[in-house]
């Protein structure tokens, strides 16, 4: 973990890095999907990749900065409602929607972080939860956008004027490109001066202060970065479901994002993506096996939380570290 996850630092060893394998599998996924239930698999995969991006962004806070935000789904909502509201106003291009979503998310993260980060431990968690719920109830009150019922999108967003996202395959690859770009960005950030301070803040905030740095600033900026990336995930998720509702930002969804990060192993970025895929796959597969699938899922989560050795990304221990 020291000095970042170092994906492409050494190109001769880059192919051994789990992230490379993970993304290669995503890139190749549409090929087998072409011979199976194409529409269903692509839709599920797009959903998973978008939530993988959300979990990835949360890992910057939770895994690198030890900030257990219980309101991260609010940013999915900000991204999704950016699509719904801007499309309604006639701005249906991602080149407008994504910058607006990022701007709104940054402001929201800046203001709520400024307050929440004054608290620590359980009080920080509670305060992020409260802010998330405030946004959830705000969305519920938007009667022009269906209130609690939400609103169906007239069409998917355009990309630089093109209708690339209209095809499921186009949307999938755009979502995947966003995930990979975000991964590369965060990997660089974790290995940078900023990332070194953020990792130090996780380990020992007093030590960071004692070398002359104020932990608050680094935590706040990490929250803004994470919120912005999660809002991009929300934009893509809205396009995948072609529907936007307050359900995007329930506190349960925030909890699921935390679970994804813990399941995949905190602090290694690609672990969060893997955790998202595994969580969503379990959620998809288990109901077909047993009626009590939530109990099985619960038991698996407890195992993942308790046993450090059972973290999914430990399966790859020794690979590319």
């Amino acid at each position: 973990m020291t000095g970042g996850t170092a994906a492409a630092a050494n190109s001769s060893r880059a192919w051994r890095h789990p992230a490379v394998w993970l993304f290669a599998a995503f890139l190749a996924l549409p090929i087998p999907a072409h011979f199976g239930a194409n529409a269903y698999i692509l839709s599920f995969a797009t959903h998973a990749v978008a939530l993988g991006l959300a979990a990835l962004s949360l890992d910057l806070m939770l895994g690198i900065g030890a900030l257990a935000s219980f309101g991260h789904a609010a940013y999915l909502g900000i991204g999704a409602y950016s699509v719904a509201i801007l499309s309604d106003m006639g701005h249906d291009d991602l080149l407008v929607q994504i910058p607006v979503a990022i701007a709104v998310a940054s402001v929201f993260a800046g203001i709520t972080g400024f307050v929440s980060l004054r608290a620590s431990g359980v009080y920080y968690i509670m305060s992020t939860l409260a802010f998330g719920q405030m946004l959830y109830f705000l969305a519920q009150s938007l009667s022009a956008y269906g209130g609690d019922d939400g609103v169906t999108l007239a069409a998917r967003s355009r990309l630089a004027g093109s209708h690339l996202l209209a095809s499921d395959l186009g949307l999938y690859y755009v979502t995947l490109a966003a995930l990979i770009a975000a991964y590369v960005l965060l990997d660089r950030i974790v290995g940078s001066r900023f990332g070194r301070v953020l990792g130090a803040v996780r380990q020992n905030p007093m030590r960071v202060r004692a070398v002359g740095l104020d932990p608050f600033r680094y935590r706040l900026l990490a929250s803004i970065l994470a919120g912005s990336l999660c809002a991009v995930a929300g934009v893509l998720l809205a396009n995948q479901s072609e529907f936007v509702s307050p359900a995007f930002m329930t506190w349960q969804r925030s909890g699921e994002l935390l679970v994804m990060v813990v399941l995949g192993g905190m602090g290694r970025l690609w672990g969060a993506v893997l955790g998202a895929i595994c969580f969503l796959t379990l959620e998809e597969v288990l109901p077909g096996l047993t009626d009590n699938w939530k109990m099985v899922l619960g038991a698996l989560l407890i195992l993942a939380a308790l046993g450090r050795g059972s973290r999914l990304s430990q399966l790859f221990k020794g690979v590319g570290r």
Partner: peptide, 16 residues
Amino acid sequence: IQARSGSSFRFFGRVG
């Protein structure tokens, strides 16, 4: 040393 030499708000260069 980083804390007193240059900004720590640098995001891309590999600090290592």
